[in-house]
Amino acid sequence: MSNFSLSPLFRRSIGFDCLSDLFDFALQSETPNYPHYNIEKTGDNSYRISVATAGFNKDQLEINLENQVLTISGKVTEEEKNDTDKEYLYKGISSRSFTLSLRLDEHVEVQQADYTNGLLTIDLQRNVPEEQRPRQIPIGRKNSEQLLEESQTQ
């Protein structure tokens, strides 16, 4: 793959460094097709990631969060890979190690993770601080409250 730079797109923007990093992350990593997973929106600010991990137990799964990248990995031991005692007539359940990385938004936090019936679920919550929520900026002269405050301080 040749080097691809998005810097011309960000010349006239302020504070979109994270968006640039997101594009870099997307271009560097291939889209995984194993294991299968869903991302659900369960509320206005809540999400759930469900990962199909049939054949794994809790001890073989690991969840890490570093620099807003959620990494889910499953490790199959060499003993399980080289188990010659079993003869499969058909093997449809894959038993291979995997790593799944998902980039989270700046204010998305991991709430909890559960493992039930071969399905790993991770609940996420978006917590945007009040000062960073969208607000309307008034246009024009100072409003009457500001004028009243200024007159009281003089």
Rank of each mutant, 00 (worst) to 15 (best):
Y34N: 00
I63C: 01
G92C: 11
L104Y: 03
E131C: 05
N143E: 15
A113T: 01
L70G: 03
T71Q: 09
N45L: 15
N64M: 12
L22D: 14
Y90F: 15
I72A: 05
E149H: 14
G74T: 00
D44W: 03
N67F: 10
N143Q: 14
Y37R: 00
I137D: 07
Q112M: 08
I72V: 13
P35D: 02
Y88A: 09
A54R: 06
E150V: 05
V69N: 04
A54E: 08
N143R: 13
R11S: 12
G140L: 11
R141N: 13
P134I: 09
F98L: 01
R11E: 11
K142R: 07
I63R: 07
S2Q: 15
N57E: 06
V108M: 10
G118N: 10
E150H: 08
Q28T: 12
G43L: 07
D21V: 02
E40P: 02
Q132F: 14
F4T: 14
D114P: 03
E40Y: 10
E150L: 12
P8C: 04
E79S: 13
S73E: 11
I63D: 01
S20D: 03
L27W: 08
K86H: 05
E145C: 06
E131P: 00
S20G: 09
T99F: 00
D17C: 04
V128Y: 02
I14F: 08
Q154T: 03
L61I: 06
R103Y: 10
A113S: 14
L19M: 10
G43S: 10
T53V: 15
P8N: 07
Q111G: 07
E62Q: 07
Y115S: 00
N64I: 15
R141K: 14
E79F: 09
F23M: 05
D105N: 04
Q60I: 06
Q111W: 02
R48W: 04
P134Q: 04
F16C: 12
I122G: 07
K81P: 00
K41T: 06
R12N: 11
Q111E: 06
L89F: 04
